[in-house]
Amino acid sequence: MRLCFIIACMVAIGVGVVHLRKRADIAKHELLGLNAEHRRLRRDADPLELELGHLMNPKAVAERAKAMNIDLNAAPVRLAGPADETPRRNGRATN
């Protein structure tokens, strides 16, 4: 009876080790997949950063602003009337 118990324990340990090994392998493969995905995402993100750089080029911004008739050096437009009133807290403007 005691021998059966020992054998059962050893079998359980064996099954556990195999299971853990399997999980470890799966995790390693998931890690590889994530690494590959990371590389792919970076490959996609880098050109987007450059594209954003093109769009934020001050010269390009100035040209777009000119086309839209916006003066980039002008002070912010102040609206007349109640819409211009900024909410106040403790008697001080929050803006």
């Binding site: 590389r39 970076r42 880098d46 950063e49 450059l50 954003l52 750089g53 934020m56 080029n57 001050p58």
Partner: peptide
């Protein structure tokens, strides 16, 4: 695993402006 060369930024309106960057 390719590594990326660093980027170079200038500044405009107190914000960084990308001057040079690498892409694959």
């Amino acid at each position: 695993i390719p590594a990326r060369v660093g980027s170079i930024y200038a500044v405009a309106h107190n914000r960084p402006v990308l001057l040079a960057a690498s892409k694959q």
